[in-house]
């Protein structure tokens, strides 16, 4: 399975958790907002870390989707918050 991780900038409030959990693919900018630098985690460990980052972000700003079909959301909140 190939997955893709993205950060919704309209939701991110700079809690910096994503950068702790998925440190290989997320950087924080000078304000502490997360910015994805490697959006396609490879390997089981990395994918797992990405999924954890998505589940942990207090604002649900981190979204992990199946990159083959972006409608399949694996972790993170939807635009409606559900």
């Amino acid at each position: 399975m190939t997955v893709e991780i993205r950060i919704d900038p309209t939701r991110c409030r700079g809690h910096a958790i994503c950068a702790l959990m998925y440190s290989e693919g997320v950087e924080l900018d000078r304000w502490g907002y997360g910015r994805v630098v490697d959006g396609t985690p490879e390997g089981r460990r990395s994918i797992k870390r990405a999924l954890r980052a998505a589940a942990a972000c207090p604002n649900g700003a981190v979204v992990v989707e199946d990159s083959a079909d972006r409608r399949i959301r694996l972790a993170g909140r939807g635009p409606d918050g559900g």
Partner: peptide
């Protein structure tokens, strides 16, 4: 009326 964020093109599934 604020922009929203999605990687899915709106033509596929809008807000």
């Amino acid at each position: 009326a604020r922009p929203s964020f999605s990687a899915v093109p709106m033509a596929h599934r809008g807000p």
